[in-house]
Measured scan of single mutants.
Amino acid sequence: TTITITINGEELRIRGDHEEIHKILKAWEEDHNDEEIVRLIRELAER
């Protein structure tokens, strides 16, 4: 699965399995701050 998210003008492409993507979207849905979401995404992007 690949998704693209733009946060603060920075486009981040994430490839991951369903569970990893779900974790990010769940954090977003629960209204975590952008920095935390960006950190989760970067961790995935670095793999």
Rank of each mutant, 00 (worst) to 15 (best):
T1P: 06
T1S: 09
T1V: 14
T1L: 14
T1C: 11
T2V: 11
T2Q: 08
T2E: 13
T2K: 04
T2D: 07
T2L: 13
T2P: 04
I3N: 01
I3A: 06
I3Y: 07
I3W: 08
I3G: 02
I3R: 08
T4Y: 14
T4W: 13
T4R: 09
T4S: 08
T4A: 06
T4K: 10
T4E: 03
I5Q: 00
I5P: 00
I5F: 09
I5H: 00
I5N: 00
I5M: 04
T6S: 08
T6V: 13
T6D: 04
I7Q: 01
I7W: 08
I7F: 08
I7M: 06
I7S: 01
N8M: 09
N8I: 02
N8Y: 04
N8V: 03
N8T: 02
N8L: 06
N8F: 06
N8S: 05
N8H: 07
G9D: 03
G9P: 00
G9K: 03
G9N: 05
G9S: 03
G9V: 02
E10C: 15
E10T: 15
E10V: 15
E10H: 11
E10G: 05
E10S: 11
E11L: 15
E11M: 15
E11T: 15
E11N: 13
E11K: 15
L12F: 15
L12D: 00
L12V: 04
L12E: 00
L12W: 15
L12S: 01
R13P: 02
R13T: 10
R13H: 07
R13Q: 06
R13M: 11
I14T: 01
I14H: 01
I14F: 08
I14V: 05
I14S: 00
I14R: 00
R15I: 11
R15A: 06
R15V: 10
R15E: 06
R15D: 04
R15Q: 07
R15W: 12
R15N: 06
R15K: 06
G16E: 02
G16C: 06
G16M: 05
G16R: 03
G16L: 07
G16W: 10
G16P: 02
D17M: 08
D17A: 09
D17Q: 09
D17C: 05
H18K: 10
H18I: 12
H18M: 11
H18W: 13
H18G: 06
H18C: 12
E19L: 10
E19P: 07
E19F: 13
E19T: 11
E20A: 08
E20Q: 06
E20L: 11
E20N: 05
E20C: 03
E20H: 06
E20Y: 11
E20T: 11
I21Q: 01
I21A: 03
I21T: 03
I21H: 01
I21F: 04
I21P: 00
I21D: 01
I21E: 00
I21M: 10
H22E: 08
H22D: 08
H22F: 15
H22P: 01
H22N: 10
H22Q: 08
K23M: 10
K23D: 04
K23H: 06
K23C: 02
K23P: 03
I24Y: 04
I24N: 01
I24Q: 02
I24T: 02
I24R: 02
I24D: 00
L25R: 05
L25Q: 03
L25V: 05
L25P: 00
L25W: 09
L25K: 04
K26F: 08
K26C: 04
K26A: 09
K26N: 06
K26R: 12
K26S: 08
K26V: 05
K26P: 00
A27S: 07
A27N: 04
A27M: 15
A27F: 07
A27P: 00
A27T: 06
A27V: 06
A27H: 07
A27K: 12
W28Q: 02
W28A: 02
W28F: 07
W28R: 02
E29W: 11
E29N: 13
E29Y: 12
E30G: 09
E30P: 07
E30A: 15
E30V: 13
E30H: 12
D31Y: 09
D31R: 14
D31C: 08
D31K: 11
D31G: 13
D31W: 10
H32R: 14
H32S: 10
H32C: 02
H32D: 07
H32N: 11
N33T: 11
N33P: 05
N33K: 05
N33L: 14
N33Y: 14
N33V: 14
N33W: 14
D34P: 11
D34C: 12
D34T: 08
D34N: 14
D34A: 13
D34F: 14
E35Y: 08
E35P: 15
E35T: 09
E35F: 07
E35N: 08
E35K: 07
E35Q: 10
E35W: 11
E35G: 06
E36L: 09
E36M: 09
E36T: 09
E36H: 12
E36G: 07
E36W: 13
I37F: 12
I37M: 08
I37V: 11
I37Y: 05
I37G: 01
I37C: 03
V38I: 13
V38H: 07
V38W: 15
V38A: 05
V38N: 04
V38T: 07
V38R: 10
V38D: 03
R39Y: 04
R39N: 05
R39F: 06
R39C: 03
R39P: 01
R39M: 05
R39H: 04
R39W: 04
L40G: 01
L40Q: 06
L40M: 10
L40N: 02
L40S: 03
L40H: 03
L40F: 04
L40E: 02
I41A: 03
I41H: 01
I41C: 02
I41E: 00
I41L: 15
I41F: 04
I41Q: 00
I41W: 03
I41M: 05
R42P: 00
R42Q: 06
R42L: 11
R42M: 08
E43A: 09
E43S: 10
E43D: 06
E43G: 05
L44K: 02
L44D: 01
L44W: 14
L44N: 02
L44E: 02
L44A: 04
L44P: 00
A45C: 09
A45R: 05
A45F: 09
A45Y: 07
A45S: 05
A45G: 03
A45T: 05
E46F: 13
E46P: 01
E46N: 09
E46V: 14
E46I: 14
E46K: 13
E46S: 11
R47Q: 14
R47P: 07
R47F: 12
R47N: 13
R47W: 09
R47A: 14
R47E: 09
